[in-house]
Amino acid sequence: MYLYPPLPPRCLELRPNNLPALMSLAVSFTNLGVGGGACDTLQCWLSHHPRYHQLLQRGGGTPRRAPPPPASLQEVLLLFQEASLMNPDSVDPDLQTGLGVLYNLSSDFQRAELAFRAALSSRPQDYLLWNRLGATLANGDRSEEAVEAYSRALELQPGFIRSRYNLGISCINLGAHREAVSNFLLALSQQRADQRCSQQQMSANIWDALRIAVTTMDRPDLSEAAEARDLDLLMGAFHLV
């Protein structure tokens, strides 16, 4: 049983066949751990795709225009695998992204990696794909390789806060706590610089991870600053001002 908002995002209300929005929504559901929502959204993506919608036909009839019924992970994965066979001489990076998401949901991280690398072969400058590859490698307990992928994402998009946070988590997993703290502080600083985001609205996840990393450094003063969310003091202590 999974729960997610019954109404689609505003962009999908205005244009239900918005393929980039559907793929982004599926990734967001995956990040939230809502596998059922991701599967339903990816099936909807197929149903609206001008090339792949035929896979959802019933009995050779016309393609369905109504949203498909809920489907299992295995059902949607089989549909995407079948769709990939329709492109024997080329790579569809969007389709490969969907496959990467589905393989992650099924904990098949090796195949998920291959799918994202296939997508990157067509879009090597796509920082979102590099971040997704990093998350896949991290999920497969390959933190060192994840660091490389996250770093590439940040080379392409230095202000991408999610990759900065993910990089910090991988640094914690590798025992590089000072580097982790630096990345978390940079992420928080970037959020504060965004006029749309007040200090009270900063991600609690980043602060929580920062506190974990700081406690390993045997610096009670920094632990107190992290508890108080004193970003300026912490930035100064790590010479990031």
Rank of each mutant, 00 (worst) to 15 (best):
R164N: 05
H177N: 13
L3G: 00
F116K: 10
A119V: 04
Y150H: 08
A225S: 06
Q201R: 14
A226G: 10
E144L: 11
S203Y: 01
M202Q: 15
S203C: 12
L95T: 05
L128I: 09
Q74D: 13
L85F: 11
N205T: 13
D232L: 12
L19M: 03
Y103H: 15
L222V: 00
A180V: 07
D108R: 13
R123W: 04
S189F: 01
N17Y: 04
L185A: 12
L154H: 08
Q57A: 13
R162T: 15
D232A: 14
A237L: 01
Q54Y: 10
Q57L: 09
V91D: 03
A226I: 00
A153H: 08
R178A: 08
T97H: 14
D230N: 12
S151R: 13
I172E: 13
R58D: 11
Q96G: 00
P124W: 01
A180I: 10
V181Q: 02
D126A: 07
R196S: 15
P9E: 10
R111P: 00
L167C: 04
L128H: 08
L233E: 03
N104T: 10
Y150Q: 11
H239N: 10
H177L: 03
L174S: 02
L3V: 07
L95C: 04
P124G: 01
L7I: 06
G36E: 15
A149R: 08
V34I: 15
N31Q: 13
L95R: 02
P63I: 02
P93G: 02
G134N: 08
D89M: 02
R10V: 11
A149C: 15
L133E: 05
Y52M: 02
L102P: 04
L167R: 09
S107I: 01
L12D: 02
E148I: 02
G100H: 07
E113Q: 15
A112E: 05
L77G: 05
R111L: 11
L46N: 06
S72H: 08
N87L: 08
C197H: 11
Y52L: 10
D218Q: 12
P6D: 06
M235D: 01
Q96Y: 07
G140Y: 10
L105C: 06
P16K: 09
L154F: 09
L79P: 04
R229Q: 15
Q54R: 14
L25C: 03
